[in-house]
Design a protein around this nucleic acid. Structure first.
Lengths: 336, 336
DNA sequence: CTTTTAAATGATAACGTTAGCTGATAACAA
DNA sequence: TTGTTATCAGCTAACGTTATCATTTAAAAG
């Protein structure tokens, strides 16, 4: 590997001068600069990032800690962060931490060890307190899809509650009053907010949503959706529409309903959440709440980089809004 | 940040000893080792990766260059590589390079600059020659989903041809002789191999697949599938089954067929390729060729790490086989 | 007890870069 | 001219490790 000294020797200058040319900082004579640039090109010199990181005590890399890249949602998240990175000459380090709080902490530790100054963290297992503690130590740490009041300026999050309200109102506007909800069994803050939003919206409309109309799936995927809808139908209640926790569960529901000869949306309407590729791949195409993950991740990455360099914790908040995407899985019940 | 010197000072030993304890190499007294380990714990010392990389001239990080993490296929690829990483205490650097040869080369360069010794590269824009050149410079470079005879020991690839043959045979076995093919318009080696495989299989069965039965989509996604199937149907030929280049195009086809009142599989059978999540989300669930990307990426990552450390280019080859997943999108035409 | 050998620890230099200082020109005002 | 600044370039030390060698200490052998 050619080093800065090689370039200096060939160009007949000192390493310092080469360094100045490379970084474009400090005063360098015109002729001298040209000469050095030529040599850099000739030898195709590339500064050693590790040496730079060592001396400058930070690494120009952005860490992304998510549950699993292979999941569409997180892939898109990673992609958004990566985009931001290209604007800043940063590199992206991705770590999957799926299982436990310990795994998440290990991931963060590994990033710190790397002197990764900017980190976008999608945590589901750590407590608010733990996260606050981490935030104190790591200036460029940003939480995505999570809100903690104490460190609000580091949280890039989505108003799940309002999103769920919008989805609910859409069903109401379409004449649906016998609406069921399918959500995940585990305690997940998103699920909680969405459920609250739904209840709020129906309450506001003067409709009491009976708890028997809420059913749970053990997993937040297609299988969970199928399972929950089976349990729901077993109750034999009048249902004209179902709000799903997310698109994956919604698609599972559609499959199960289809298998039983129940048509979507003619017999039962379905609304998803997230607006993943799967929502448009589904037949009928899912009406769903668009979750702007890519934009949020992009924003979060920039924020993390900003926080890691300057330390202005401006009062800014970083709340995003989901919005409804009308497709084909909801029928107008008034028309019937 | 606490450094090795801090640990040494507190433990009352030299940095060398601490280094030995950390790495578990060299002779260290029992009591001394215990003492140092305690101090490491107390101070929660973590070696600086950048310093290690600088002095050892390599960085224990695995680079992954793909088109786009947000695409299901690549997300799964990245995930497989990440898995392998956990076994080796490596970190994963992901770079998206979507557009051009230059972008791909930039990505590799950036990785090299990082002294990233192991790289898994999914190239679609670079020529064989360019790749061979790179391979010569970078010992831990592995190509995934690509075969180049000259550097066969670095190629982890899939037998697309045989896979396509299997898919074709499956249709033949189900009585389909009027089969159309929908593939991508651009010159893509995978598309080429799959098409060849299809033609071979039908030839072997004594059936001449007319070129008018092959239609092309401008993009290898749902839109491309729709576009191609529209063009295909416009020809007004007898078709009982369609082989799609991949699942995304297949799902697009299913949508377009559905919109025209053509039932899948009752009127036309459809076979996909890749076995992405979208294949099982589709209604009907797609019969498709399973592409073991996760396993391949896992394998490729290990291979890259191996090649970067030892330099044994054993004669091993790394060819994987796709296999058919029977689901619901193919009907038995004999039965009709 | 010496002497020899092995084991444990320390000292030093190096990895490639940058920050901060010092010195050498050149440009300008008095 | 002479002094005063700018402007430019080089020198040195430092970042946190590890590899290599040197030294000390302990154990084993004679």
């Amino acid at each position: 590997m050619v080093t800065i000294k090689d370039v200096a020797r060939v160009a007949g200058v000192s390493p310092s001068t080469v360094s100045r040319v490379v970084r474009g900082e400090g005063k360098v004579g015109k002729a001298c600069r040209a000469k050095v640039q030529q040599v850099i090109k000739d030898l195709s010199y590339r500064p050693n990032i590790n040496a730079q990181a060592l001396v400058s005590k930070k690494s120009n890399s952005l860490g992304v800690v998510i549950q699993k890249v292979s999941m569409s949602f997180f892939g898109t998240l990673a992609c958004g962060a990566e985009e931001a990175t290209k604007e800043n000459k940063y590199r992206v380090l991705i770590i999957n931490a799926e299982g436990s709080e310990q795994e998440e902490l290990d991931a963060i530790n590994s990033l710190v060890q790397h002197r990764c100054s900017a980190i976008v963290f999608h945590s589901i297992h750590c407590s608010d307190a733990t996260l606050c503690e981490l935030a104190e130590k790591i200036s460029g740490l940003v939480f995505i899809n999570r809100f903690i009041a104490k460190v609000a300026h580091r949280c890039v999050w989505l108003d799940n509650n309002l999103g769920a309200q919008e989805a609910s109102r859409y069903l109401l506007d379409n004449g649906h009053t016998d609406v069921a909800v399918i959500t995940r069994k585990d305690t997940n803050p998103d699920a909680q907010s969405r459920l609250e939003g739904i209840l709020t919206a129906f309450n506001n409309a003067g409709i009491q949503l009976d708890s028997s109309m809420i059913e749970y799936g053990s997993t937040a995927d297609m299988a969970g959706g199928k399972e929950a809808v089976r349990a729901l139908l077993a109750k034999d209640k009048k249902i004209t529409a179902i709000l799903a926790y997310n698109d994956n569960m919604a698609v599972g529901m559609v499959h199960e309903l289809h298998a039983r000869g129940i048509r979507v949306p003619e017999d039962i309407s379905v609304v998803g959440f997230d607006d993943l590729l799967i929502a448009v791949a589904c037949l009928p195409k899912l009406t769903t709440m668009h979750y702007p993950v890519r934009e949020m991740a992009h924003y979060a990455a920039n924020l993390a980089i900003e926080l890691s360099t300057k330390d202005n914790s401006t009062g800014r908040t970083h709340l995003f809004m989901p919005h409804l995407i009308e497709r084909d899985s909801v029928a107008n019940y008034n028309a019937k």
